[in-house]
């Protein structure tokens, strides 16, 4: 009696799992995905679309360059080429973050290419397009013009940024 009951129970669970997996496969295929590079800056989570990020670089020595706006940190050498580095925190008018581990995302928008200094790379993930929501009206005015959307990841709110607008802001400074 007991063995019969057990077999029927395991069968039932197995069939349930299979069903679930089938359903998942369908959503995976159907849902259009967006690759994002998530990073932390001044304690908050932000993200750039994966297509804008060419490479994630560890923070290297930045040579300052005179006569430029304060949001431009300076120049770095990436495989023999000279790239500029901008301070995203300053552009987004975030409080300065001193002494944190920092990375540079080598980002590109159109023809413009520059390094963007961030605090920490969190993850590179695929996010369903449907999960990306419009930016809420409650956002700070300093940030709002650069925000492309918002989504949830692991219970945290992540702000998706528009790189093109950011570069435009730098050029306009």
């Amino acid at each position: 009696m007991a063995s019969e009951q057990d077999i029927s129970k395991s069968d039932r669970i197995l069939s349930e799992i299979k069903l679930l997996r089938e359903r998942q496969k369908i959503t995976d295929v159907d849902e259009p995905q967006l690759q994002v590079v998530m990073f932390s800056l001044a304690g908050d989570m932000y993200a750039f679309p994966g297509r804008n990020v060419l490479e994630i670089l560890p923070r290297e020595e930045v040579s300052p360059i005179p006569g430029t706006p304060s949001c431009i940190i300076g120049l770095i050498i990436v495989r023999g080429d000279i790239e500029s580095v901008v301070d995203l925190g300053k552009i987004l008018d975030l409080p300065a973050t001193e002494g944190r581990e920092s990375f540079v995302l080598l980002a590109a928008s159109g023809t413009v290419r520059s390094g963007v200094q961030i605090d920490q790379v969190e993850d590179v993930v695929e996010v369903p397009q449907s999960a990306i929501l419009a930016a809420p009206a409650t956002l700070d005015s300093g940030i709002r013009e650069f925000v492309a959307g918002q989504f949830e990841h692991d219970g945290k709110s992540v702000t998706l940024l528009d790189l093109e607008k950011i570069f435009a802001q730098v050029a306009a400074a």
Binding site: Q35, V37, G50, R51, V53, L54, E55, I56, L57, P58, F103, V121, D123, V124
Partner: peptide, 11 residues
């Protein structure tokens, strides 16, 4: 980092 970059490359 390499993994991240690889993921970006893969994408």
């Amino acid at each position: 980092l390499i993994a991240f970059n690889a993921a970006l490359e893969a994408a």
